[in-house]
Amino acid sequence: MIVLVIGIVVVVAVVAALVVLRRIPRHDTGVTRFQRHIDALSPEARRAVIDRGTQHPDGRREQRDN
């Protein structure tokens, strides 16, 4: 009998814990993802690509006459 009561209490506790956990918004995934997005747009992150544009001869070639 006691075993059964303890069993029910454990199950209820686990379910309650799960419900509570699901209710806490998962802040950090959104925050991390947004931060990654913003970091990838920072001037430092973009430097390499922009420099490639200014160096590459192909990039500047066929403009004026078209």
Partner: peptide
């Protein structure tokens, strides 16, 4: 200063950081 290349460079940046910039 790169009026004709700005668009492709911007898209190029997205290909370099594909996963981080998927949202764009």
């Amino acid at each position: 200063n790169m009026p004709l290349e700005a668009v492709v460079l911007g898209a190029g940046h997205c290909i370099e950081h594909y996963d981080a910039l998927k949202g764009m």
